[in-house]
C-alpha cells in the first residue's frame, strides 16, 4: 500500500488514539448517565471496530456491557451514482434492536456529513431510537450538511485537497491517523 510506505504525517499515533477513545468512553458515560440504555452502532468497517473498542472501555470502567452493532450505509448513500456499485459492508444489530435506546453512531472520520446522513436513514429503517448521538475519532471539517458530532477524538483542520486515513490494529495491523497531502500518493 502506498499509504503504508509513505511516511505521510501521522497526526495521531497509537497511544493518542487510545487516549481519545478512553476520553470518548468517559464522555458517553457522563452524558448518558452511566450509559444506561445506550447502544453503540459503528459504521463499517473502521467505525464498527471503534464502537467495539469504546464498548470494551465502558465495560472496563463501569462493568456494564453496552450492546454493540454495525450498520452498513452503502445502500443509503447519496453518491451511489457517482461510482460503480460497491460491495456492501456488514450490518449486525444487537439482538434487542434499537427501539427506545440511545444510539451512539461511531465513525472514524467525520467530513461532509453525508455518511452520517445515510446512517440516520438506515437507522430509521431498523427501528426508532429514543435519541441518536454521534462519536467520531477525527473531525476534519468541511461539512456539507447540518450535522455535528457529540463526541470527537480530535478536531483536525484540513484542506479539502488532503486525505485523512485511519489505520486500526484489527484491520490494518497498526493504529494511526495519517494526513496525506495531495501529490504525496
Amino acid at each position: 500500500m502506498s499509504d503504508a510506505r509513505n511516511p505521510a504525517r501521522a497526526v495521531l499515533e497509537g497511544p493518542d488514539i487510545h487516549r481519545a477513545l478512553t476520553r470518548i468512553a468517559h464522555e458517553i458515560l457522563e452524558r448518558t448517565r452511566g450509559a444506561e440504555s445506550v447502544v453503540l452502532i459503528g459504521i463499517p468497517t473502521r467505525g464498527a471496530t471503534l464502537a467495539q473498542r469504546i464498548a470494551e472501555r465502558i465495560a472496563q470502567f463501569e462493568g456494564i456491557k453496552v450492546p454493540v452493532g454495525a450498520i452498513d450505509v452503502t445502500m443509503y448513500r447519496d453518491d451511489l451514482r457517482l461510482r460503480p456499485a460497491r460491495p456492501l459492508g456488514r450490518t449486525e444489530l444487537p439482538a434487542d434492536g434499537v427501539d427506545g435506546r440511545t444510539v451512539v453512531l461511531v465513525d472514524d472520520v467525520l467530513y461532509s456529513g453525508r455518511t452520517v446522513r445515510a446512517a440516520l436513514d438506515a437507522l430509521n429503517d431498523v427501528g426508532r431510537p429514543r435519541a441518536v448521538q454521534l462519536a467520531t475519532l477525527v473531525d476534519r471539517g468541511h461539512r456539507e450538511l447540518p450535522i455535528r458530532a457529540d463526541y470527537v477524538g480530535k478536531n483536525l483542520p484540513t484542506s479539502k485537497s488532503e486525505k485523512v486515513k485511519v489505520f486500526l490494529e484489527e484491520t490494518d495491523g497498526r493504529d494511526a491517523v495519517v494526513l496525506i497531502k495531495e501529490g504525496d500518493r
Binding site: 452498513d72 443509503y76 460491495p87 456492501l88 456488514r90 450490518t91 436513514d121 429503517d125
Partner: peptide, 23 residues
C-alpha cells in the same frame, strides 16, 4: 463471488420488518 457476497448481506435485510431499501 461479488454477487453471492452482496446477496449474503441483503439476506439480512429480508429478515427485518422494513425490507425496503432506497437504493
Amino acid at each position: 463471488l461479488l454477487i453471492l457476497d452482496t446477496a449474503e448481506e441483503l439476506a439480512r435485510v429480508s429478515q427485518r420488518s422494513i425490507k425496503k431499501l432506497p437504493t
